[in-house]
Design a protein around this nucleic acid. Structure first.
Lengths: 341, 341
DNA sequence: GCAAATATTCAAAGCGCTTTGGTAATGATT
DNA sequence: AATCATTACCAAAGCGCTTTGAATATTTGC
């Protein structure tokens, strides 16, 4: 079923049928209803590619998911983020175009997306401290929103980010308040901007207390369960080990918990743990009482915000950057307690 | 830059330029090279929607990800599956169109995908035992591959699945061989086909040994860490508890491990655990020695296989269903041992 | 009752590509 | 030298929609 056939059936021109369906005012209510009824009856939907060829808008948003070439790891938070964004898209009749590409091919992918005019805008995932994608997308003239931020270079673009620095500063201070002096940081890769900011917050808290963060107690790496386990284990093996950990993700924290339990220690009593909790749907932080004390910020919500911001930007045709900085909730769980004597 | 301009620059017709770029034979090698050089120089890429409007092929594959309306949970294996499939798509110049929809809207989504002609085929995720989507997609005439299978109704369609029944039968038998008699099963929702098959395998092993599976020791629910924890905890609280668990996913197993550790038991000594391991990139089952004894099958690989099968089907224009049944590896880890006396 | 204003409808062009059905030029065949 | 293939190219139609500009029908104003 297509427009031509449908208009023939109705005895109307394609123009009128098209306008009736798209709610243009210059169509009488009587015919509009007749047209809509016929469209429903014949299960007519405008061919999306013909439509977007005619309008110049693709009604699709691109997400380029980089896969680390070295480690082949997919960021697990991505499922929840996508779910959030997808909710907004489908509510606004947009499609989501996903490109999963080795990080080495990212630039080419963005260029193609732009040249082929496949999308009206893109969401940028996992920004590095200094990320060439910003300049690239600007030069391509394609609207975009970054999930996260960059620190160096051009910072004049739209983003939605969590206040990572403050979160981790608060987390560290909270542990200091409990009497802990030696903290371990188990963080993501430091060329990732969020990881850098978290470390900065961690260090800032040390500084105000006049404490010194031991480099050996600041680990940075791929955010897997295994990495969390290894680093926690080796830090706990130190002759003068940390009494508390701050861990950048639930997944790593699971490894940390395993290491603690392997060392015959009890989390929350012998050793405290604060995690950053992205509120992943499949990894809830306990039911009523959180397992982990956490700086919490829903990545599902972030997906929704990014998507909405991008659609707004596209709609407005507007170039002035927008920003949303989300504060985290510091929620008390059972993984923290006073420093052991 | 578009075809028209490019052909003007080259002093050739659009026909010739198009043919040169698409490697048709009726173009001299000299002009072909000249055209390709110019295309590269001007960063020309065919507008994908114009192209697919003309060819009738969208060069896109749809994935409809259902979100459970009741629980709002995103299946975490989905990230790795998508990554695998995406690899195949980009290698074959296809796009991936993702629709994240409440399970209640699934049918409408498929109908729209078909009517709007947005995709050349779809991958069906998470089939139920008797899944209406099969008949729907057949009636819509849209090529599809199911990741998993159905048990009831029409079973004549293409799929890629893991031999879930045999996997869990083997797992149970392995535990019986170790002297365990009371096994606990912590499984996904049973209307999901994979969960049903796993349970069938579990029961089959009991039957051949002349053993009876206790209903209280067979849990079924949403595959979260919390569910694994709750069920393991309650089963361990039984006056005559199981001495081994078979767990349907790594995520749930993490909860099971937490319950075991909370109960002051040692996994692999006091209680054995076998999991099904989807080989998720961000949740590797240990480094050199697996943490869990597992029936292992990479979901990333399954994504690749599904994608490739679908592209092959579309390419062949062929209707005869194809099947790939993957056997799992039963890999020995540190979570299993002889039944305690 | 007639011009002007307004409300409806339509034919045709255009979005950027592919593909059909040619033509012109070259080379091979008798 | 005339005929036939073959090679290399092109003009124009068509994919299914939107939108411009014009035409026709219906009201309104005086």
């Amino acid at each position: 079923m297509n427009l031509k056939k449908l208009s023939k059936i109705l005895g109307l021109s394609q123009t009128t049928v098209s306008r009736a369906l798209n709610n243009y005012p210059e169509v009488s209510e009587a015919t509009r209803e007749r047209v809509k009824a016929a469209a429903a009856q014949h299960n007519y939907r405008a061919n999306i590619r013909a439509k977007s060829l005619a309008t110049g808008r693709s009604m699709a948003i691109g997400h380029v998911i980089p896969i680390s070439t070295r480690h082949e790891i997919v960021n697990p938070i991505f499922a929840d983020f996508i779910a959030g964004a997808g909710e907004i898209y489908s509510r606004n009749h947009h499609d989501m175009l996903l490109s999963v590409v080795p990080d080495i091919d990212e630039e080419r992918t963005y260029r193609e997306l732009a040249a082929k005019a496949s999308v009206d805008g893109v969401i940028v995932h996992g920004p590095r401290q200094n990320d060439p994608r910003i300049a690239l997308l600007k030069s391509l003239g394609i609207p975009f929103v970054v999930h996260g931020r960059t620190s160096d270079g051009d910072t004049d673009y739209s983003w939605v980010d969590v206040n990572n620095r403050r979160s981790f500063e608060r987390a560290a201070n909270f542990l200091f308040d409990l009497g802990h002096i030696r903290l371990g940081l188990i963080n993501g890769l430091e060329f990732m901007d969020f990881a850098k900011r978290r470390k900065d917050g961690f260090l800032a808290a040390h500084k105000t207390r006049g404490l010194h963060a031991h480099p050996v107690f600041m680990a940075t790496g791929e955010m897997t369960e295994g990495f969390g386990y290894n680093k926690a284990q080796s830090m706990l093996g130190d002759p003068n080990p940390p009494t508390a950990f701050i861990v950048s993700s639930m997944i790593m924290a699971i490894g940390v918990r395993r290491a603690i339990s392997d060392a015959q220690l009890k989390m929350g009593r012998d050793i405290s743990v604060i995690i950053h909790d992205d509120a992943l749907s499949y990894l809830p932080n306990g039911a009523d009482i959180p397992i982990f004390t956490a700086t919490k910020s829903s990545v599902h919500e972030a997906g929704k915000l990014c998507a909405q911001m991008l659609l707004d930007i596209i709609d407005a045709g507007d170039q002035t950057p927008r920003h949303t900085l989300l504060e985290t909730d510091l929620t008390l769980g059972e993984s923290t307690g006073p420093a052991p004597k």
